[in-house]
């Protein structure tokens, strides 16, 4: 199913491409500031939503000033380029093999010094499979920190959209969990399969339905994704005092 908006945009883009062949009407930036890096890990299934990038990047570029790449960089945790990833993504359904000590140290170092990591259990089974394995690994990476539910005043709920719950392909938890170090939350975790909600095939058709909320739930997944991306690039910008009166006013009933 293609939305009317998408059809119109495609038509306009096509027309623009003909009229202004040199123009960047696809919104693709030659110099993107954002791209996804996805971890290939051993065991389990690391690539549960191989087509999640296109739609979320398109949405990101349409709604925000961020220039993003539609490229998805796949890497192991031992890859030195890990440290230059603005957004490290990891997803899966099942239990995976434990990280090696070097991988854990690399991840710990990346996250401690400013990296950002979004993990999601696309199966959505609490205490089982990917969820259990990830929580165990994170405990080994940060022995003194726990994944905790992020409060509603966390910048990730306010970095672009003002949201108070998150969507996804499924609705396991309407909130993000995270590990916060000082004022920075380098680890955000969800079991709602946001990337499943973002996934679209080459014809522009959504790959998954989003029960029970349907398109509203998908829309919330996009908003949550954009907020996470903006958060990964701006840190706690929305905590600055200058934003307070506006956000307070908009959130007041």
């Amino acid at each position: 199913m293609i939305l009317r908006r998408e059809f119109l945009l495609s038509a306009l883009t096509l027309a623009g491409g003909i009229l202004f062949p040199g123009a960047n009407l696809f919104g693709k930036s030659p110099y993107p500031h954002f791209f996804f890096s996805q971890i290939r890990y051993r065991g389990g299934s690391w690539d549960t939503n191989p087509h999640f990038v296109e739609a979320i990047v398109e949405e990101l570029e349409m709604r925000t000033s961020i220039d993003a790449s539609r490229e998805r960089r796949l890497m192991d945790l031992s890859d030195p380029d890990l440290f230059f990833s603005p957004f490290l993504f990891m997803a899966g359904n099942y239990e995976f093999e434990p990280f090696s000590p070097q991988e854990r140290e690399s991840l710990r170092r990346y996250l401690t010094f400013g990296g950002f990591f979004f993990a999601e259990d696309t199966l959505g089974a609490k205490g089982y499979g990917f969820d259990r394995a990830l929580r165990a690994e994170l405990k080994k990476v940060f022995p003194h920190q726990d994944l905790k539910r992020l409060p509603l005043d966390h910048p990730v709920y306010r970095s672009f959209y003002l949201i108070n719950h998150i969507g996804g392909r499924q609705l396991v938890s309407p909130y993000f969990e995270g590990i916060t170090l000082d004022h920075w939350t380098p680890v955000i975790y969800s079991q709602n399969d946001l990337s499943g909600a973002w996934s679209r095939d080459k014809l522009g058709k959504w790959i998954h339905e989003c029960p029970p909320g349907g398109e509203t739930q998908r829309s919330l997944a996009f908003k949550a994704g954009i907020n996470m991306i903006v958060y990964s690039l701006t840190w706690d910008y929305k905590r600055d005092l200058v934003h307070h009166p506006f956000i307070k006013k908009r959130l007041s009933p």
Binding site: T64, S65, Y161, F246, R250
Partner: peptide, 21 residues
């Protein structure tokens, strides 16, 4: 005091003001 341009004049917002930060 920082200001980050989160949206350019050509970006399209899909929500009312009350839902954006």
């Amino acid at each position: 005091l920082s200001f980050v341009i989160l949206r350019t004049p050509t970006d399209v917002l899909n929500v009312p003001l009350q839902e954006q930060s």
